[in-house]
Design a protein around this nucleic acid. Structure first.
Length: 324
DNA sequence: AACCCAAGCAACCGCAACAAT
DNA sequence: CATTGTTGCGGTTGCTTGGGT
């Protein structure tokens, strides 16, 4: 009978995060950087446990998160990686740098499982017995299918490296979106003044933009895997966002200039916080900080194999599918 | 309009891994 | 080496929302 988990402590708030809490959290992280989550609730006054703060940051607030529909190619990647790695969502997410493990996990459980079942049901039993083979088959099938449905839109696909400015949402964009959603759902806002709140959000956004960075490994992976994204999707996401384009235009420059310092796994968006920082050295080493160095990233055998294999498959797919 | 149900997703929980002492 | 504290991960829950009746 040990002490209760931190989140069970009296006074710890649970449930959905409010925009105010998000702003407080982002402000704090912007100033101090992610990590040392233990101290976050204490220093910010947030009535949340450290785990909750970390989760909120990594899954929703950190810059670089892409939300919304998964592209057919992302689907394929997930299916393929799941077959290779199993339910290692964090590992899978590392190959889809714009997506969080939670997002991928949810998408797998709610969409892809069903799709796989559906496909497996119609497959040759010998093929279906091998999940890896099956999933790779499904990936191709799905892509072939999606290429049919995409039709003329196929030509509008382009590599992420050419359109990354709009694919990388800032943490403040996330807040903005949340704020708007929250305003929609709350006729009588809990805050004194939502205009002020939005103004605060904008301030944070502007401050945060200067620190907006992007993962070097993600760029490498994206270019190597040949991630593609539909223009339609970008446009679709832009409509409901306050000043989306405006911030995108700023981000596009910042992102490209801060590529090398982004630590995806910690969500560390602070370019000035180098990998050599004593505090984070171990964690960075463990989680692949070396990959941010100017040298070629050291890849595990599995990663090398995976990358090589996927390159082959992507190229093959690009040849086979009109989508690419 | 009211109710029911299923899907989707945000958030929580428990455990494992790791570092510090 | 053992203990303690912190962080990260994967499974699961439960709330919200949208569609159907």
């Amino acid at each position: 009978m040990g002490r209760p988990p931190c989140c069970d402590k009296v006074g710890i708030k649970k449930g959905p995060w409010t925009p105010e809490e998000d702003i407080i959290l982002v402000s704090y992280i912007q100033e101090h950087g992610p990590g040392n989550w233990r101290s976050v609730p204490t220093n910010t006054g947030l009535m949340r446990c450290s785990k909750s703060c970390r989760l909120r940051w990594t899954n929703y607030l950190r810059p670089g998160i892409k939300r919304g529909n998964f592209t057919p190619h992302e689907e394929g990647m997930i299916i393929h990686l799941q077959a290779l790695l199993g339910n290692k969502w964090a590992a899978i997410a590392s190959y889809l740098p714009q997506r969080t493990d939670n997002d991928i996990k949810n998408y797998w459980n709610t969409h892809l499982k069903k799709k796989l079942k559906k496909f497996q049901a119609g497959l040759d039993p010998h093929l279906a017995a091998n999940s890896t083979t099956t999933n790779q088959f499904v990936w191709k099938s799905l892509n072939e299918k999606s290429s049919e449905t995409m039709g003329n839109h196929a030509s509008s696909y382009k590599p992420i490296s050419e359109s990354q400015s709009s694919t990388y949402a800032s943490s403040t964009e996330n807040i903005s979106r949340l704020l708007q959603g929250w305003m929609r759902s709350s006729p009588k806002p809990q805050t004194t003044d939502t205009t002020e709140l939005q103004s605060n959000t904008n301030n944070i956004m502007q401050n945060n933009n200067s620190k907006m960075v992007k993962s070097a490994i993600s760029v490498a992976a994206a270019s190597k895997f040949g991630f593609y994204q539909a223009k339609d999707e970008q446009e679709e996401g832009g409509g409901d966002m306050m000043s989306h384009e405006e911030f995108d235009s700023i981000l596009s420059y910042e992102n490209l200039n801060n590529t090398a310092n982004w630590d995806k796994s910690t969500g560390d968006s602070m370019p000035q916080k180098s990998c050599a920082d004593d505090d984070d050295k171990e964690r960075h080493n463990k989680q692949g900080c070396d990959q941010n160095s100017s040298d070629d990233p050291p890849l595990s055998v599995l990663e090398k194999w995976l990358l090589d294999e996927n390159v082959g498959q992507v190229e093959e797919m690009m040849e086979l599918s009109p989508m690419f």
